[in-house]
């Protein structure tokens, strides 16, 4: 394995782990509120997988950082500006359709990214990717299925899905932006250049959105700042108030 800047590797792992952490928490907000029991359970299952993957990514991040921080420390004791998730994952759930569309837009990226990471020069990362990709294969099949079902459903569900797509689309581009951290990962053979995943991603979502009778919005404007930590949306802070409340109110609380 080529020499790699450990700080860059730490950043990369935070990006992976914060994506699954923040999205996992968002999805878990549906627990007890879904339209029907089966959907409720499916969303809770998905959230659980994402939180499990978070433990692996952030666990490794803490190890690489070498300051003795655990996955839990990283999840519960950092503030907004230290999070490195893409903005897409922190957006509020909206209605059930928007939640599932956001899930699909993320799952499609994750399934491609994890496929590449299985060939990472870092065996620890390849192992996590191997494990996570099996779970994500089920996620992406389900979210794609639901997007098709709702998009090509009633007039009401179709309109809501189209509106969700208009709302979420400007947040898709951030997943494919590259910076110095990515360049360091590419040079060390640890991870692919995000920009290089775009063609495969467009083909994958294009086929599903087509089946769902949804129309891709024009334009490629992309909100950014989540994965670099430059600027999150106002929503992340509110989410962390809920997610981190216990550890903030009772530091070190354990049971």
């Amino acid at each position: 394995m080529a020499e790699v800047d450990q700080k860059a590797l730490f950043e990369f792992l935070l990006r992976m782990g914060d994506n699954t952490l923040v999205l996992g928490h968002r999805v878990s907000e549906w627990c007890g509120h879904s339209p029907i029991l089966e959907e409720d359970i499916a969303l809770a299952n998905t959230a659980l997988d994402l939180i499990g993957q978070t433990q692996l990514w952030l666990g490794l991040a803490g190890e690489v950082e070498g300051k003795g921080r655990s996955a839990d420390d990283l999840a519960f004791l950092r503030d907004v500006w230290d999070f490195r998730n893409v903005l897409l994952t922190e957006l509020p759930n909206g209605d059930f359709g928007r939640t599932l569309l956001r899930q699909f837009l993320f799952d499609a990226w994750a399934s491609i990214m994890l496929g590449r990471l299985q060939k990472s020069s870092d065996p620890r990362i390849a192992a996590i990717a191997e494990k996570a990709s099996k779970e994500v294969a089920y996620h992406v099949e389900r979210s794609a299925d639901t997007v098709v079902g709702l998009g090509d459903g009633t007039q009401e569900s179709h309109d809501r899905m189209q509106a969700a797509l208009e709302y979420l689309w400007p947040y898709v581009g951030e997943m494919f932006q590259s910076d110095d951290v990515d360049a360091a990962m590419v040079a060390a053979g640890i991870a692919p250049d995000p920009a290089g995943l775009r063609a495969e991603y467009d083909a994958l979502i294009g086929a599903v959105l087509d089946e769902a009778t949804l129309t891709l919005p024009k334009g490629d404007f992309a909100h950014k700042g989540g994965r670099t930590g430059y600027m999150h949306t106002e929503h992340l802070g509110h989410m962390l108030c809920h997610m981190q409340w216990l550890q903030r109110a009772y530091p070190g609380c354990d049971w």
Binding site: S111, S133, K134, V136, A137, Y138, V140, E141, A144, D145, V148, L204, A207, V208, E211
Partner: peptide, 14 residues
């Protein structure tokens, strides 16, 4: 029969 996330299979299954 594990999910493989392969799109073609999924669309035709649908």
């Amino acid at each position: 029969t594990a999910a493989d996330g392969v799109l073609a299979g999924r669309v035709s299954r649908l």
